[in-house]
């Protein structure tokens, strides 16, 4: 059972930078962190990624993992190339002024579960 991405917007007071598939898509879990090697090894498909990173390679990692939605926290500036890449890959990109911790706390209240299994031991 998933949680609809569009349900994140209001509680996070998030700006929608790239809509991607947010109207219909759901996530089944989440990952929070700013190290790309850790994300690619531990995040899961169909999840939401909470991070302060906002450069275009974040979208590359999200694409490789199969992440549906990236939430950039602490109002970090997002490069135009990041937006372009997210549009290309149809990945939802949201931005919030909340910290990563506050964001995860809210996602958790909305019912987004932690991960189910480990990809890399």
């Amino acid at each position: 059972m998933g949680i609809k991405i569009r349900e994140f917007v209001e509680p996070l007071q998030a700006e929608i930078l790239v809509r991607g598939g947010m109207e219909s898509e759901e996530v089944e879990g989440g990952y929070c962190g700013d190290l790309l090697s850790d994300c690619i090894a531990h995040a899961e498909e169909n999840s939401v990624w909470v991070t302060v990173q906002s450069h275009p390679n974040v979208v590359a990692v999200a694409t490789l993992v199969g992440i549906r939605c990236i939430i950039v926290t602490n109002s970090q500036e997002v490069q135009e190339q990041t937006l372009e890449k997210a549009r290309e890959q149809k990945i939802t990109l949201l931005r919030t002024s909340l910290s990563s911790f506050e964001t995860v706390a809210i996602l958790s209240r909305l019912g987004v579960p932690g991960k189910k299994r480990r990809v890399v031991r």
Partner: peptide, 16 residues
């Protein structure tokens, strides 16, 4: 600062 170069590249390659 961009979140690269954390020192997990080779170990991820070895594990995978």
């Amino acid at each position: 600062e961009m979140g690269f170069g954390a020192g997990y590249g080779l170990s991820n390659m070895k594990k995978c």
